[in-house]
Amino acid sequence: MISQNVFLKRSWPMLVQCAEAHRKPRWLPVAKSKIYRIPKRPVVSEEERLELLRINNNYKTQMRAIRRFYYEEMIKEKSTKESASSEMSIRLEAEDWARCVELNEKWNAEVAAEREERRKIQLAEMEEYALAHMEVKDRELKERIEKATKEIKRQKELSETFITPENLDEAIEYAIANPTDYNYAIDLRGKKYVGTETPGSLPKDEKRTNSSV
């Protein structure tokens, strides 16, 4: 603990100066007054330079050797530690592995039984659905066939009244002999109002020219 008296009875002014306070922040450019100032190169005598070079080179060599020595020792230690612990760890790992395999097989069997049950239910459902679907389809097909046979019968009956090349002349003659006049109106009660002038009674050639014009 620092007693209070140290601060009160101090003999020198307690002023902590920051070296940074005098510095230019790094991101500012060189001051205008300092742009053309070229710092002087330190003058080192040749003797001193050679001696310093030798000493520094020596120091670097020594430090490199020490660093390498301890680095290699560290690696050696690590490898021995690993090899020592590996025998134990191999046994433990094998046990753990066996336990894991057993557990996994148990889980697999459980899941397989569940899956088998589910598959059975699904299969039954699918069969049921397919049978119902087939029944519906069968019924639809039968209905369509019935419908078709009915239609065929009707058409066969109708076919007796068809105009064929054999009875074409007959039909034409019949049509000419019995002209039909559709040019009439009917009211709500269905009463016919025949027109006074029926175009159907006009000669055919004249009518064609009229319509073409």
Binding site: E47, E48, L50, E51, L53, R54, I55, N58, T61, Q62
Partner: peptide, 12 residues
């Protein structure tokens, strides 16, 4: 190379 100062390059 030794760990001592060694032989100085410029004894002066």
């Amino acid at each position: 190379f030794t760990m001592s100062l060694g032989k100085p390059a410029s004894p002066s």
